Computed example of a mutant assay.
Amino acid sequence: MKAAVHTRYGPPEVARISEVDDPAVGDNDVLVRVHATTVNRTDCAYRAAKPFFMRAATGLTRPRRKVLGTEFAGVVDKVGGGVTSLAVGDRVFGYNEGAFGTHAEYLSVPEGGMIATMPAGMKFGEAAPATEGSHYALSSIRKAGVQAGQDVLVYGATGAIGSAAVQLLKCFDATVTAVCDTASLEMVRGLGADRVIDYTAEDFTADEQRYEVVIDAVGKTTFGQCRRLLKPGGVYLFSDLGPWWQNLALTLVTPLFRGKKVQLAVPQQDKETALHLRKLMESGRFRPVIDRRYPLDQIADAYRYVETGQKIGNVVIDVVPPT
């Protein structure tokens, strides 16, 4: 099968198209003919092995798994003998961090993993980006214990995580203030934000409003910058380790004192999460935002674009040309 392969860590150019063996299918696995996948921040981090400690899991000197990719949408091509909930021909989407392999024509994934059938009428390119940013956003919302009527600020509301967070927070009936640039103001309002701050026109940290929760969805702020925005007992959640990995230390230190604190959200990667996201998409309450699409042969270009930090929502890779 054709796949995007990397045999060393490095810049986007290390990803090249090559022929590799089809993945093995165990008794409890399904083989998916991948129609669409994505390139996201998670993929970029694993490809470059940054931060360095990631190599403890991925391989110290070279990657153990040559085919990357976390998100997918496609058609079940084969099922193992123990599979009962999915069948050949099912249109599915999901997330496969750790095992990876979605940047390829075929993917083997456990039946009990983060996989579900697609909403009726949804296209593969629309379903593929439904999991990465959203499951990070959902984990932050749940970790913070967001309740109806609470005030939440989302910094970086145009990325995969931020655009999902705005929509998912409205599912929790929170009051959402979103921070983005001028060009994205109307798009973010369309996602459901109650209030939008243009960071190119004003300093969002000088905002007079106070919040129960601040979510940095792009990893470009610090707790020190955002602390004054929090109400007493408020929570700051992050999507990056921060300067000198300070956010990890702050998750340990700030809970020792009464008042504002930093929390680390550990995302759930299970079937229940995929089913929950499907339900939200079926109801129309969540739709992943798509910026650009590339064919698999141009995946290095997709990596380059994602790493500019300018993408709006998600970047989709068409493994099978859409019809």
Rank of each mutant, 00 (worst) to 15 (best):
E212D: 13
Q310R: 09
T182A: 15
V75L: 08
F53N: 04
E186Q: 01
Q310Y: 15
P129F: 02
D194A: 09
G284K: 09
T177G: 06
P321R: 09
I115W: 01
M54L: 12
D29F: 00
P110G: 12
A57T: 07
A128I: 04
G219D: 12
D297I: 07
A160W: 03
R16A: 14
D301V: 07
L86P: 00
G159V: 00
D240W: 09
V34L: 02
E272Y: 07
Y9K: 05
S134H: 00
T102V: 00
W244G: 11
R65Q: 08
A36L: 05
G59D: 10
N314W: 04
T200A: 14
L248M: 15
T7E: 10
Q150W: 07
G74I: 12
A274R: 04
G309Q: 07
Q268V: 11
T38S: 08
V83E: 02
A56I: 13
T254P: 13
C226S: 01
A206L: 11
D318A: 02
G101S: 03
N28E: 15
P232T: 04
L153D: 12
A265T: 04
E282I: 06
L296M: 15
G156H: 02
A56G: 11
T222R: 03
L107T: 13
A164W: 02
V34F: 05
C226A: 04
V79M: 02
D240R: 02
F238Y: 14
D240P: 09
T323M: 05
G112H: 01
I115V: 12
A148S: 10
A15T: 15
K220D: 14
T200L: 05
Q209S: 14
A15M: 15
V67P: 12
A99Q: 12
A57S: 11
R64H: 13
K123M: 06
A206H: 15
E186N: 08
S184K: 11
R189W: 02
C226K: 08
R287A: 07
Y305I: 03
R195I: 06
V213M: 03
E132I: 08
P23L: 08
R189V: 03
A201E: 15
V176D: 03
Y236N: 01
P11Y: 05
K170Y: 07
F257P: 07
S108W: 07
V109Y: 00
N96C: 12
G82Y: 14
I317H: 01
R47I: 03
Q269L: 11
R65A: 07
A300Q: 12
R65P: 05
E132V: 04
T222W: 05
L252V: 13
A49I: 07
M54T: 09
C171M: 03
V79K: 06
L275P: 07
V109P: 02
A193Y: 05
T158R: 14
A48N: 15
V316S: 10
A157Q: 13
L185W: 11
E282V: 05
R292P: 03
Y305V: 02
Y9V: 09
R293Y: 01
Y199P: 04
D194H: 10
M281V: 07
M1G: 10
A57P: 05
H35W: 06
V188E: 10
Y305E: 00
L230E: 06
F100E: 01
A137N: 10
D207H: 11
W245D: 13
M1R: 08
M187S: 14
I161Q: 00
V83S: 03
Y199W: 06
C180G: 08
L153R: 10
D198T: 14
A116F: 03
N247M: 03
L241N: 14
S239E: 04
A265Y: 08
W244M: 14
G80N: 11
C180M: 00
